[in-house]
Amino acid sequence: MPSALYAVLVTGPSMAPTLRHGDAVLVRRGGRAVRPGDVVVGVFRSRPGLLVVKRALRATDGGWWVQGDNGLVTDDSRAYGVLDVQGRVVVRYWPRPRWRFRYPRV
């Protein structure tokens, strides 16, 4: 299956300081496998109607245990369990691209 890019708008503070409310990112569906430390987009099995952006920590139960970069916000796997990943964030393109910016690995 070929990989596809699509845009996602970040809402809320859970990924600050890496991503902030209002940032727009490109997400790659397919391509290389998700690795711990990647910033991913997906849905929690317990909240299938909510698309979220989080950092992948470890593979578990056929999905991923994820956490936001803002430790004060706990709307991640600590509250909702396993995430089914739909894609991997490859670049933030709005506002002002950070050229050569790589998301830090955990």
Rank of each mutant, 00 (worst) to 15 (best):
V25S: 03
D61N: 13
R45L: 11
Y93L: 12
L26D: 01
R47G: 03
D38Q: 05
T11P: 02
V66A: 00
R45K: 13
F101V: 06
G37H: 03
G12R: 10
G49V: 00
G30Y: 08
R28I: 03
D76E: 00
V34W: 09
Y93C: 14
L9D: 05
P13R: 05
A24G: 10
S3Y: 10
P97G: 06
L50H: 13
A59E: 15
R98Y: 09
Y103L: 13
Q67W: 02
L50N: 07
R58M: 14
A16T: 14
G12I: 04
V34I: 14
Y6N: 09
G30Q: 11
V27P: 01
V90W: 04
D84I: 13
L50K: 10
A24R: 13
R28S: 01
Y80A: 06
V43D: 01
F44Q: 10
D38M: 09
Y6A: 04
R92T: 07
L5S: 03
S14L: 06
R58V: 15
V8L: 12
R58A: 15
P97C: 07
G31T: 03
L26C: 01
R78L: 14
N70M: 14
P17F: 01
P17D: 03
D76A: 03
M1R: 09
R78A: 14
V25F: 02
W65A: 13
V73Q: 07
V53E: 04
L72H: 06
R88F: 02
K54H: 07
R55M: 04
W94Q: 05
D38E: 06
M15A: 04
A59F: 08
A7V: 13
W94H: 11
V39M: 02
P2Y: 11
N70Y: 14
V53D: 02
R105E: 15
A4Q: 15
G31V: 02
A16R: 12
R29W: 05
D84W: 05
V25P: 01
T60E: 15
D75K: 13
V10K: 09
S3G: 08
P2I: 11
V89G: 06
T74R: 13
R92Q: 15
N70T: 15
D69C: 02
V53I: 09
R96M: 06
V53N: 02
W65L: 15
R55N: 05
W94M: 05
R28E: 14
V82I: 15
G68V: 02
V40F: 09
D23P: 05
R47C: 03
V10H: 05
G42W: 01
G37C: 08
S77Q: 00
Q67N: 08
V39G: 00
S77M: 00
R28T: 00
R96L: 11
R20T: 07
D76S: 02
T74P: 08
